[in-house]
Design a protein around this nucleic acid. Sequence first.
DNA 1: CCATATTAGTTTAATATTAAACTAATTAAT
DNA 2: ATTAATTAGTTTAATATTAAACTAATATGG
Lengths: 152, 152
Amino acid sequence: MGTKHRFDTGEARALKTYVKLMRATESVTARAHRQLSSFGLTISQFGVLEALYHLGPMSQSEIGQKILRSSGNMTMVIDNLEKRKLVRRERNRADRRFFIIHLTDDGKKLISSIFPSHAAEIARALDVLTPAEQQTLGRLCKKLGLEARPEA
Amino acid sequence: MGTKHRFDTGEARALKTYVKLMRATESVTARAHRQLSSFGLTISQFGVLEALYHLGPMSQSEIGQKILRSSGNMTMVIDNLEKRKLVRRERNRADRRFFIIHLTDDGKKLISSIFPSHAAEIARALDVLTPAEQQTLGRLCKKLGLEARPEA
DNA sequence: CCATATTAGTTTAATATTAAACTAATTAAT
DNA sequence: ATTAATTAGTTTAATATTAAACTAATATGG
């Protein structure tokens, strides 16, 4: 004997919000992806280069935490960047468990030339929102992102 | 003769908003992923089953458009669902270029049992926001998602 | 000093994802 | 009737992504 399951209004609202969040993100991400692929980069490769560009050399696991990727994935993305001579791994002498990842000169040149275009593309994508709306979106996403993140 | 590139405040604000959007999405998505993997599904597999569950049988390209995936990816995700006997492909007789994808009985059972847990998980993730904030987030994301989507 | 626990990164297996080139089928134009 | 254009889906190659198991190195506790 089953009754027809109805979601309460809280669940229905949350699901609708979630779907809109996913679609918005997918659209902006697809747009960023198209632009970056014209520079021969994937979104994750760009994320690594950008993190190193803005924050300086750091370990693989630190980069993974910053751009929210697993350690196995970081190995492959950094392997590919290393292969293209955009980054280099330097074993830490004090603790040989980890590497410090550095941008190479070529890597610095590439990311510093790409970054302004990327910034402009993101600004164009978000131009549909007013400055106040962008602030509100950012505030709500920050609130959402902090809570949803599982704290290890 | 080079001047140091500074982003105007519009670009800086857009980038900050974008980073927060990506992080929020990543957090909620990671949470949903963990839950779905305990049911043996990936997010894209779930997306296909959910689309068929709520909207009825449809072609592969229609499903791809609804869950924002490429046709090549849809082939593989549906191949895997077919292999597990959760969906079946039926060639359209009127136009043999396309298939109609149906949920199987097992597929219906699985998605109908999972969906309430998924809805509850999403509601928990979004519980950090008030109802009014969820409405606002949804409205802003809808605005963003419509504009950023490239119209073919 | 030795055994155990923890950490950084790698490997494995599976799945996801894209763009581009392709095949098969249908539609449109001549 | 024939050719060209378009559409649905597949295949290819490359890269991304995860969880889990693994190795190597360091830290901790007895």
